[in-house]
Computed example of a mutant assay.
Amino acid sequence: MPDTPIVTSDSFGWSGMRLSGWEGVSPQEAHEPVLAEHLIVIHMTPQPVQVFERADGYRGEGVARPGDINVFSAGDLSVCRWESELSFLRLDLSPSLTNRVAEELELPGGGGAVDFGRHIRLNDERVMQVARWLYEDLRAGGPGGSLYAESMIRMLSVHMLQRYGAVSARTDNQPLRLARTQVDGALQYIHAFLDRELSLDAIAAAAHVSASHLVRLFKQATGLAPHQYVVRERIRRARDLLLAGRPVQDVAASLGFSDQSHLNRHFKRIVGVTPGEFVRQCR
């Protein structure tokens, strides 16, 4: 197989992170003297692979197994050499994003440069799960949209900060909660622009909170993550439009779904039947 990624997020307009998936990369040495961004590498080769790795403060040889995770901070040296074909996911996380998230979360030291240190062959199910969700969305053509991706990227950033960052989590026991007026601002914005591509930053601005706070606290207020709430409300509106006689294809286009099959999938998951079946049952 060619030594190029089988899929990347480059054309999907993601902000703050680039994800690339690589399969069967031939034996070689990857050398980056100064990483421009924080780097997370998740080994995906089905069988164990002998690797030699070097980073600032680390030098060693070992066996990489499926699910092993390496983390390097921006500015670090990163060297990896492998002796047989290697498959992996690569996540390049923007320092400007992680620094901003640390500041938004009001973490001690927030506003300064974040350092995640160097970690070789970690096992972290949360990092693995978020990466898997994003990768599956890419492979499917990005049906979740930018709001979904931004939510996942910020979720990953918060987790990385709290578990590996030089910045610590808040020590007080009083959770930050959205005021009722802030919740109303976010909800009013979502309902006003259900037919458009909604971004996490725009919803957060309407709520007068940071995007990271919105991701963490929106579920406390509504019981759903922002992207889940948006999908649910679009399906609710789709039901009304279908009952008013609008064709399924037109409904999908008017509510921001990528195509009719995208609407069908979410409609059946939430309502229990396809849009066509729903219309027939209601006649």
Rank of each mutant, 00 (worst) to 15 (best):
M1N: 05
M1I: 08
V7M: 10
V7E: 08
S9R: 00
S11G: 10
W14M: 03
G16K: 02
S20V: 01
W22S: 06
E23Q: 14
Q28G: 04
E29P: 01
A30T: 13
E32T: 15
V34E: 12
L35Y: 09
E37S: 14
E37H: 13
I40E: 11
I42G: 02
H43P: 03
M44G: 06
E53I: 14
E53P: 00
R54V: 10
E61W: 01
G62Y: 10
R65Y: 06
G67M: 07
V71Q: 05
S78C: 01
W82P: 00
S84H: 10
S84F: 08
F88S: 05
S94K: 02
N99L: 05
P108Y: 09
G109W: 07
G110Y: 12
G110V: 11
R118C: 12
H119W: 14
L122F: 03
Q129K: 12
W133A: 02
L134P: 03
Y135W: 11
A140H: 01
G141Y: 00
G141H: 00
L161V: 05
L161H: 02
S168M: 10
T171D: 06
Q174N: 10
L176P: 05
R177M: 15
R180K: 14
R180M: 11
T181Y: 13
Q182C: 02
A186K: 01
L187G: 03
Y189T: 01
A192N: 08
F193W: 09
D201P: 01
A202Y: 04
A205G: 12
V209L: 04
S212D: 14
R216V: 03
L217M: 14
L224T: 00
P226M: 01
V230H: 06
R232M: 13
R234T: 04
R234A: 06
D240A: 15
A244M: 11
G245T: 07
A252M: 05
H266D: 13
F267C: 04
F267P: 04
G272N: 06
G276V: 13
R280Y: 09
Q281T: 13
R283D: 15
